[in-house]
Design a protein around this nucleic acid. Structure first.
Length: 195
DNA sequence: GAAATGATTGAT
DNA sequence: TCAATCATTTCC
């Protein structure tokens, strides 16, 4: 089984977010441990004009990788305690990426390890800031094709935790596999807007 | 240099 | 409903 080619990532974030569902995320630790997870939930951040996207702040030391060539990892620490893993997409010069929000344990993960959330999957897979800017075709970090997820099993909805982005927060840029037991729980179940 | 803040999570 | 906790950004 071969690693996903760079052409896979050189497309709009929404397309990559859709195609990433079902693929296998592989992390090979320095101690030799191999961890594999099947991606079941993603969120697209489509560019500088997308106010929910970190790239909306322009090109800074942190967001620089998003504006570079696709197929790299964009890692960041959120709330001082949780790492998030993103895949840089689209053409160089476009600040776009896809946040991987949940995976299904496939191999090498401790029993009981939770992977149903962006911070949780990074902890379980051993992903940290050290993986920032790493090429996704690296031995230590790469993706493999999985069994494609059929269209009828793909669900869409608004992205989580981006209410500051105004109208952009309502765009259905969050994609997940219907019926997966490992999709993150939606904070959306609590009381929402009163329109 | 100092202050504000967040693509979350788990405990209360 | 709330606090933990720090890299990054923004504002002196």
């Amino acid at each position: 089984m071969s690693v996903l080619p760079s052409s896979f990532y050189a497309r709009p974030a929404l397309v990559v977010a859709r195609e990433l569902l079902g693929t296998l995320l592989v992390v090979q630790a320095s101690d030799g441990a191999r961890r594999v997870g099947r991606i079941v939930e993603t969120e697209a951040y489509i560019g500088e004009h997308d106010l929910a996207c970190h790239a909306a702040k322009g090109l800074t030391p942190r967001t620089e990788v998003m504006f570079g060539p696709p197929g790299k990892a964009y890692m960041y620490l959120i709330y001082g305690m949780h790492h998030c893993f993103n895949v840089v997409t689209d053409a160089p010069g476009v600040g776009a990426a896809v946040l991987v929000r949940a995976v299904e344990p496939v191999e090498g993960l401790d029993a009981g390890a939770r992977t149903d959330g962006p911070g949780k999957l990074c902890k379980a897979m051993g992903l940290t800031l050290a993986h920032n800017r790493v090429d996704l075709a690296s031995p230590g970090l790469h993706l493999l094709p999985g069994v494609p997820v059929e269209e009828g099993r793909v669900e869409k909805g608004p992205r989580i935790g981006v209410e500051y982005a105004g109208a952009w927060a309502d765009e259905p840029f969050r994609l997940w596999v219907r019926d997966s037991q490992h999709v993150s729980k939606r904070p959306g179940t609590r009381r929402r807007n009163r329109a």
